[in-house]
């Protein structure tokens, strides 16, 4: 079993921070992962920067541009994960667009990522219709391919997605891009209940989650809450990004 499979056998609230690898500095990735772990994160999602992140809002777009200017590459990121694994067993999922992975070579990427200590892979521009090859490659290497569902995904399809992504699925909380505003109304609750009803896998919820209250609300039904844009905003505005990230993640988990 990989670390994601093990983690989601446990019940209880989970905070899952997202940040972009190589931002604000090329070598901040490992420090931020370790800070997240100290802050009580259950798992981390590390963004692989791409030149054309079409599911992302301005904050994550800019962090990706910054990371690319800093010289971040897929190969360097896998090195940084290896470095984290010298001192941490926190589950790590990489989140990135398909093209850099294709260019690296899908099979090589899956093998190298697993060898580096990566547990999961999230690709926002890979819907289940196009995921066939990657599903079987990931299964063979025990890398958890996390597929996404959206508020407009029909129930039957949620079931099909959860059968392909047995370890974990990722629910996009709103129709929109990262950094969007979370629906204040009951929409999110009924959406999560619908996913819970149709999904055969554990599921986490992301997009628009910013506060301790959001984290609690999501965890009442879902198996974890992903916090990305607002964490990157904290990182961007802090003098000591690593400490600020740790403090913010601790607050999100209600462990001040």
């Amino acid at each position: 079993m990989n670390r994601i499979q093990t983690l989601f056998q446990l019940s209880g609230e989970k905070v899952i921070p997202f940040f972009t690898a190589g931002h604000p500095r090329l070598d901040s990735t490992a420090d931020l992962v370790l800070a997240a772990e100290r802050g009580g994160a259950a798992m981390v999602e590390v963004g692989m920067p791409f030149s054309d992140p079409l599911a992302d809002g301005p904050v994550i777009q800019q962090s990706s541009q910054s990371a690319l200017r800093n010289g971040m590459t897929t190969a360097k990121l896998l090195q940084q994960v290896k470095q984290v694994r010298e001192s941490s067993e926190i589950p790590i999922a990489l989140m990135g667009y398909l093209n850099p992975i294709l260019h690296y070579g899908i099979q090589t990427f899956v093998t190298d990522a697993r060898a580096a200590g990566v547990d999961g892979l999230i690709i926002p521009d890979l819907p289940c219709e196009e995921s066939e090859d990657l599903v079987s490659l990931c299964k063979a290497q025990e890398l958890s391919l996390v597929l996404l569902v959206a508020p407009n995904t029909p129930g039957k399809k949620i079931t099909r997605i959860s059968q392909l992504a047995q370890d974990l699925i990722y629910c996009v909380a709103v129709l929109g891009i990262t950094g969007a505003r979370l629906d204040e109304a009951d929409g999110l609750v009924s959406y999560m209940e619908r996913v819970q009803h149709h999904s055969e896998s554990p599921f986490v919820v992301g997009f628009g989650i910013k506060t301790r209250e959001d984290v609690r609300k999501v965890n009442r039904i879902a198996d974890g809450a992903v916090v990305g844009t607002s964490l990157i905003e904290v990182i961007n505005s802090a003098n000591s990004p690593v400490e600020a990230a740790e403090t913010y993640i601790r607050e999100l988990g209600g462990k001040e």
């Binding site: 890979l126 219709e129 196009e130 597929l147 569902v149 959206a150 407009n152 995904t153 996009v172």
Partner: peptide, 20 residues
Amino acid sequence: HRGHFDRYGGKYVPESLIPA
């Protein structure tokens, strides 16, 4: 029927666009 011209084409978009 899946929108592929051999290995080219397809629908590489976020899930929220698939119904549309």
